[in-house]
Amino acid sequence: MKILVYIDNRKNHIKKTDLELVYYAYLIAKKHGGSVDALVLGSGENAGELGKYGADRVYTLSHGEFFDANGISKVVKNFAEEKSADLIIVPFNSSGKPLVGMLAALLNASTVTGVLDVPEMDDGKFVFKKGVFSSKAFAYIKALNNKVVVSLIPNSLSPEEVVSEANVETVSMAVDERVKVVGVDKVEGKVPLPEAERIVSGGRGMKGPENWGVLLDLAKALDAETACSRPVSDVGWRPHTEHVGQTGIVVRPNLYVALGISGAIQHLAGVSSSKVIVVINKDPEAPFFKAADYGVVGDLFDVAPKLTEAINKFKGN
């Protein structure tokens, strides 16, 4: 079996989520037999690193900074055909998401988005696990076609170094100019929420944007990203890019700390796959406590600063 991993490395630095993709491919190849090619969009600096996490061969594609999924889908398609790839793995992010459907149609492939685990095999066909119904259940989905495209949820596994660096080869691509990227407004230096390992999130219980200091302090102590409930972004206390939940971003950090969030089902839909949930709420009946691992019943303006202090003290030791 031949596995192809697509990695968007336009920022020219290999991220943990990229290593997860390659390591995932490695685990599949180890379990079911096969080899791993990685196709990296970007100048290829550090691309050899991917070899350590399981890529047998690494190919880099040079490009302009602005490049669009319509073009990438055709490159990946051609490349997959050239390498006779049976399984194509793409990231579960804004670069990978548009590719899945397009590749499925271009390659007549089966697709499963947001897979969580190394698949089992049944009758020579992969069976992938994914979350469905807003994380209220899992489904096991069998890919019936010979070619398969999947996207892997970030933080689903912990990549480990397994082999040595791989050789890097440069390839070129044809350009599809139908969609022109004319610019990018960036918020620099932040880890995208779906990839974040720790998140501190605030709800309406924060009372107003002027109070966010206590949350930011806690996030800083925990080295965490910040998020919020939907009403908070709806009224503009925080940017809508922080809105998590059913209609916002789905996150899966190791630690999710909720300050003044009631835990409505639509909010839980976006956060319930977090490994550990800590809820701070003054209402002992808040539904969020049912989904939490640890809870503090109390006023967040009292508890959050104490927690920040305790963490800083702990880190100081």
Partner: peptide, 15 residues
């Protein structure tokens, strides 16, 4: 929001 596929649109575009 049931199967969170996000697949249909890209398929239609390619088709």
């Amino acid at each position: 929001i049931d199967y969170n596929g996000g697949e249909v649109a890209g398929m239609v575009a390619a088709m």
